[in-house]
Design a protein around this nucleic acid. Structure first.
Length: 761
DNA sequence: ATAGGGTTAG
């Protein structure tokens, strides 16, 4: 027995535990409740697998209150609340009466059900037991109402009130966002311990006041690993990865042994940096230290590998985890695939995943949206809400709203906005930003401005989004003014702001204003140069544009040459166009747009042999024309068209209308331009009609179905071509309709034979 | 303790 006692006192790992277990069986003591309870308590401490622990439990025939208590503690520790409840029921079934040691565990585990226990323990006379009382305070502090916690707390006689009671109140006030109360209690407490101090660090980190958190951290009389972890995760969760990593170094230098939580936090800080070298060095450290990798650490590692570009390594961890995967593991892997654009693999995981949660759906919806599959994103959203099991949250809605914007689907967008109010989903700044984006991409600048104005607080993205909206609509002055407003409001313009304002100047032809803006940029990035070259090029300052490009401190990228090529096309500059195009053919050999632009330049100069040469070059290089889709929203659906499309159910009517329009347009003197040679001249020659470009098909469909006089909104996923531009002007005049076509990146508002963008050709 | 969101463009 003595030997057993000395083994029992030195159980440091799972192997020791098994030895002790074997020894107990050897001595035929395994039916004795004392030894069983002792073993189970070791299981809790060492986080033994549940099946092993349950085996121990089953070895006793008449479990007493000590055995049940240790089992309850074990499951409570694992946060397996369902098992706690089961165990409690079994305990009652065996006629074992819970004592004051049991109730704190039950209350802790019961969630809102703990409120029922409160009355129960009072009736049983456990109300003045210090542990029970503390559990009750803690329960109300966590679940609310915090006032109930306070009431129990206040009823304790001063001399009986323990630090743990104060601590539960302090954490509770932080939880319920009463910083002042938490602070006040901290100040008046008769004594504080490391838990109190750590609660303050966690609390300030939660309200993003990291300076205060650090102040408390620095003042702590003693620190536990948990305190370090609190400070670390404060930095990590507020995007201060650098600070977190620096603090981790400090921690290591101070000789503090990191625990699993520490590693998880540090790994996640590392993930957000996306630096493969840092990741590798962290993995080396883990390896050297022979750290036990639990499911949390492995999932964090999976995410880190994925974010540092090693999708294969991430997948290996995923596979190795096997049955130990939890929903976070699955979600991390799904987003990993989405991040690299592997939609199929993500979908496969999604389809096989057990227990999908909101984050799972959000990852899928956002993934589709980010990979240009807005329609699929919305389809998935509809599936999510029809399944009814899950309520979308703000994150879901932000992706969905943004997807509506990308589609230019205003009816759908309005439906989503109604869905928000009906389901009482509150939007924060980013939600409103998504709405601004949606409305402005749907051509509804009035709504975009309204949302912007109604926001209580705006961030730099709010401004940038509206400015970009103005830019796409050619509202140059408004864009410039909004940038001034944001500066007055104390928000500094960033890279994106300047891109927006410069684009706006470019679309509005505001040369001098744009120059001023450009000169005000402290350290212009490559995209700013591209915008400036675009602005100069559009207004016809081609020499200046070329000079600007040549004086760039960095190597020009495709965007810069693209601007130059576009400018050459507008101003019919063959030589400059050739220069830009030849560069682009090297930089983007697969981009058909560049070939088409150059060929259009040749066509406008009547150089048909060169046009033919470009066509041959495309064929030889295997450059495929990008498919240009156009769509129009009608009756809650998107009607999608492609050149010479015959698949639409109203196709016959659409083509009939095209023929009629062509007749009318001929009479009005319209001549389809030959410059579209590389697009679909062959199709046009075959068809006895005005041309079957996707935008024209979409417009004809809209003319057929919409009410007379209503504005027609069409989206084209590529640039609206020259021929179409001319034709749509004519259609707007002949039919007396306002037609808004959204390009890739700008709006063309056609009205009475004119277009809002005057610089197009 | 680990997973999910918005703005850029010829």
């Amino acid at each position: 027995m003595l030997e057993l006692g000395s083994i029992a006192s030195r159980v440091g790992n799972f192997n020791h535990l098994r030895q002790l277990h074997a020894q107990i069986i050897h001595n035929s003591l395994h039916h004795h409740n004392y030894w069983v309870a002792l073993l189970i308590n070791h299981c809790t401490r060492l986080r033994a697998p549940p099946h092993y622990t349950h085996l121990l439990f089953n070895s006793t025939l008449n479990p007493n209150v000590f055995v049940f208590t240790s089992m309850l503690r074990f499951y409570s520790h694992l946060q397996d609340h369902a098992k706690v409840v089961l165990m409690y029921e079994q305990m009652q079934g065996c006629g074992v009466r819970p004592d004051a040691f049991v109730y704190p565990i039950l209350i802790k585990s019961a969630g809102t059900g703990g409120i029922g226990f409160h009355a129960h323990v009072l009736k049983l006379g456990h109300g003045s037991d210090a542990f029970v009382r503390n559990a009750v305070i803690d329960m109300y502090a966590r679940l609310g109402p915090i006032g109930h916690a306070r009431k129990v707390f206040d009823e304790i006689p001063d001399y009986e009130r323990k630090v743990a009671d104060w601590n539960a109140m302090v954490s509770g006030y932080w939880k319920w966002e009463s910083e002042g109360q938490a602070q006040w209690l901290f100040d008046v407490m008769p004594e504080r311990n490391v838990i109190t101090w750590t609660a303050m660090v966690t609390g300030y980190a939660k309200v993003k006041d990291l300076e205060a958190a650090r102040r408390y951290f620095d003042c702590m009389p003693e620190r536990s690993v948990v305190s370090w972890n609190a400070m670390l995760s404060g930095y990590a969760q507020n995007g201060l990865a650098e600070e977190a990593l620096r603090l981790f170094d400090e921690m290591v230098n101070a000789g503090i042994e990191p625990d699993e939580t520490t590693w998880v936090t540090v790994i996640s800080a590392c993930s957000s940096r996306g630096d493969p070298c840092l990741a590798a060095s962290l993995v080396r450290t883990l390896h050297q230290k022979r750290i036990q990798l639990n499911c949390f650490v492995r999932t964090a590692l999976l995410d880190m590998y994925a974010k540092c570009g090693s999708i294969g390594a991430a997948r290996r961890i995923f596979d190795e985890l096997g049955a130990y995967r939890n929903s976070v593991t699955w979600n991390a892997m799904i987003s990993a695939y989405m991040r690299v654009g592997d939609l199929d693999s993500a979908r496969k995981l999604f389809n096989t995943m057990p227990g999908r949660n909101v984050v799972t759906w959000n990852s899928m919806i956002a993934g589709y949206a980010q990979n240009g599959q807005s329609a699929m994103a919305i389809e998935l959203f509809k599936e999510m809400i029809t399944a009814k099991k899950l309520t979308p949250d703000e994150v879901t809605m932000v992706s969905v709203i943004s997807a509506c914007g990308h589609l230019g689907a205003l009816e759908l967008g309005n439906w989503v906005v109604r869905f928000l109010t009906e389901n009482q989903i509150k939007l924060s700044i980013s939600g409103h930003n998504a709405m601004i984006f949606m409305y402005s991409r749907c051509g509804s600048m009035e709504d975009a401005k309204r949302v912007f104005q109604e926001m209580a607080t705006r961030d730099v993205v709010s401004y940038n989004t509206l400015i970009s909206g103005f830019a796409a609509h050619g509202h140059g002055v408004e864009a410039i003014n909004l940038m001034s407003t944001m500066k007055e409001g104390g928000i500094e313009p960033d890279r994106v702001t300047f891109i927006g304002v410069l684009t706006a100047c470019s679309h509005a032809g505001l040369l001098e204003e744009g120059r001023k803006v450009f000169e005000s940029i402290k350290d212009p990035a490559i995209d700013h140069y591209a915008c400036m070259v675009d602005l100069l090029g559009r207004v016809g300052e081609l020499e200046d544009a070329k000079r600007t490009m040549e004086r760039m401190p960095m190597e020009p990228h495709a965007g810069v040459y693209g601007s130059l090529l576009n400018a050459s096309r507008i101003h019919k500059q063959v030589e400059l166009g050739e220069l830009a195009a030849n560069k682009l053919f090297e930089l983007e050999p697969d981009n058909s747009g560049n070939f088409i632009l150059l060929s259009n330049i040749y066509a406008s100069a009547g150089r048909w042999k060169d046009v033919e040469r470009i066509r041959e070059a495309m064929k030889k290089g295997g450059v495929k024309k990008t498919t240009g889709w156009s769509w129009v929203e009608y009756g809650g659906k998107l009607h999608k068209f492609i050149v010479a499309d015959r698949s639409h159910e109203r196709s016959d009517d659409i083509y009939q209308l095209l023929i009629e329009l062509r007749k009318k347009m001929r009479e009005a003197g319209y001549i389809a331009d030959k410059s579209c040679v590389l697009r679909d001249v062959e199709e046009e020659e075959k068809e006895e009609i005005v041309g079957t470009h996707s935008e024209k098909l979409a417009i004809c469909y809209a003319l057929l179905v919409s009410e007379a006089g209503a504005v027609i909104r069409v989206v084209k996923n590529l640039r609206v071509c020259w021929d179409c531009h001319t034709a749509i002007k004519m259609i707007s005049k002949l039919e007396g309709r306002v037609i808004i076509v959204r390009d890739n990146n700008r709006f063309h508002c056609f009205n009475d034979g004119l277009c809002s963008c005057k610089d197009y050709w």
